[in-house]
């Protein structure tokens, strides 16, 4: 069973990020929101080769002047849809 995770921290060494990484399993999805969008590139690398889908909240990235290439941007409605698609959401903050 796959889970949805959310993460809102900017520092890769933050305990929320490290705990999230421990909990992520293949098949899961991760949403970067708020300051978490600063880690888009880092997570792109960290998740290479793993079957984990990365999503980035578009308005949080835009607010911060970030326009990462190839980011899978989502808006609020798509955030909701993801929460419906996955059985539960684990929030790391």
């Amino acid at each position: 069973m796959s889970q949805l995770h959310t993460l809102n921290k900017a520092c890769f060494e933050h305990s929320a990020v490290q705990d999230c990484l421990k909990a992520l399993a293949d098949g899961d999805a991760l949403i970067l929101l708020e300051d978490g969008v600063y880690l888009t590139d880092k997570f792109d690398s960290a998740l290479k080769g793993r079957n984990i889908t990365l999503h980035v909240v578009q308005y949080d990235a835009a607010a911060r002047g970030l326009h990462p290439q190839n980011a899978a941007f989502i808006d609020a409605r798509q955030f909701v849809t993801l929460c419906c698609e996955y059985n539960k959401t684990l929030s790391w903050y």
Binding site: M1, Q3, K22, A23, N87, K88, Y93
Partner: peptide, 13 residues
């Protein structure tokens, strides 16, 4: 841990 998470309906952190 993945199995533990999978076996619960809700996770609160």
């Amino acid at each position: 841990m993945a199995e533990l998470v999978a076996n619960h309906d809700t996770v609160l952190t």
